[in-house]
């Protein structure tokens, strides 16, 4: 076992009755990594987490953690923690007792117990709330109790299912840094689910993009952001102009359109962010159908022979009116070259 294969899913298939939610998943996660599981609703993120935690048994395949096959190890014997989206705190116990719950079951007692619980609460900044009941805490505080409750168990892997989705925008930002800090300080291997790509890009060492039960792409945030491999990932990370490519043409609603530039032979598609579209000059023409001001930039929606194109330019430039006809270009050297298309 090497550190880069700390948690391995091998041909893991997960199903609900006859419905296969996740077919044949292969995945390696390294020790101490902070990994984001990113994907649209219903793609199998929660299902995958539940299988790793042991709340659901794979129909086939293996789960190996730290060199041990844990596929048949029951959930209560796995060194895996899971923080629920709903926090799942025990309403009849106060904060201290919630955090102590698992430790007591492990047989930790007396001053050792006290020390570990207090340390856990300190880590998440909740020492002064020890005697409160969960109902007397804010959402963010409950989230942190839930985090502490799992952390004090010192799991080998900590899973978080949409840890930030129940929080308001400001608290979300705060908890993002908080989670990152806790992870870096403890060195725990952490996988968190999200369907917000900004969150994934900002926090993770590595991102797993899932679609319909399979992994579309795995990579660093830079990889995913700059080099999406498929039209789906491209669209997900903000390449809003995506085309299939055949030879030196791109397929559009109005037939194939020739395009100039070097394209890899293996490239199946081309994608441009709005900011990559050259506006004011080029071989194509489009009519402004909508504009929106986004602070530093201004976005235009253009009706063109290629279909609708989203373009963006500096807001300090003079604005174009609705109905204006603009020249534009889709420069191939800027485009993301996609290895796969057809998943959109």
């Amino acid at each position: 076992m090497s550190d880069s294969r700390f948690l391995c899913l091998e041909k893991m298939t997960l199903s609900y009755g006859k419905n296969v939610a996740v077919p044949d998943m292969d995945l390696d996660i390294g020790k101490g990594e902070l990994v984001a599981l990113l994907g649209p609703s219903g793609c199998g993120k929660t299902t995958t987490m539940r299988a790793i935690a042991g709340l659901m048994e794979p129909a086939s395949g293996k789960i190996v953690l730290d060199g041990t096959d844990i596929t048949r190890v029951p959930a209560n014997k796995r060194p895996v923690g899971l923080v629920f989206q709903s926090y799942a705190l025990f309403p009849h116990l106060n904060v201290y007792e919630n955090v102590a719950f698992g430790l007591k079951l492990m047989g930790v007692k007396g001053s050792e117990l006290d020390k570990r619980v207090i340390d856990g609460l300190k880590t998440v900044g909740l020492s002064q709330y020890a005697t409160r009941k969960p109902a007397e805490l804010s959402g963010g505080q409950q989230q942190r109790v839930s985090l502490a409750r799992s952390m004090v168990m010192e799991p080998k892997v900590l899973l978080l299912d949409e840890p930030l989705s129940n929080l308001d925008a400001r608290l979300r930002l705060e908890m993002r840094t908080e989670l990152q800090r806790v992870q870096k300080e403890s060195g725990v291997t952490m996988i968190f689910v999200t369907h917000d790509q900004v969150e994934a890009l900002a926090m993770a060492d590595r991102i797993i993009v899932m679609l319909d039960g399979h992994i579309e792409q795995i990579g660093t945030p830079e990889d995913i952001y700059n080099h999406p491999v498929s039209d789906f990932v491209a669209d997900f990370v903000g390449f809003e102009n995506v085309f299939e490519r055949v030879g030196n043409t791109i397929k559009t609603a109005n037939g194939d359109v020739a395009i100039a530039g070097d394209i890899d032979d293996a490239t199946k598609g081309l994608a441009w962010r709005p900011s990559m579209v050259t506006l004011g000059d080029g071989p194509f023409e489009g009519t402004v159908r909508g504009t929106s001001f986004a602070g530093g930039t201004r976005e235009y929606l253009l009706d063109t022979p290629l279909g609708q194109i989203k373009a963006e330019c500096d807001a300090s430039l003079p604005a174009h009116d609705f109905g204006a006809v603009l020249k534009f270009d889709l420069p191939v050297h800027k485009a993301a070259q996609l290895a796969r298309t057809g998943s959109l």
Binding site: L55, N76, K77, R78, L82, A88, L89, M106, S150, M153
Partner: peptide, 28 residues
């Protein structure tokens, strides 16, 4: 009125299914 995920949380913290019933369902 009692969320069922607290039982799963208890299991993940080391309870058996039956243990979870007595430790987190009954008191609530």
């Amino acid at each position: 009125n009692l969320r069922s995920d607290i039982e799963e949380a208890a299991v993940l913290l080391g309870c058996s299914r039956v243990g979870a019933f007595f430790r987190v369902v009954m008191p609530n």
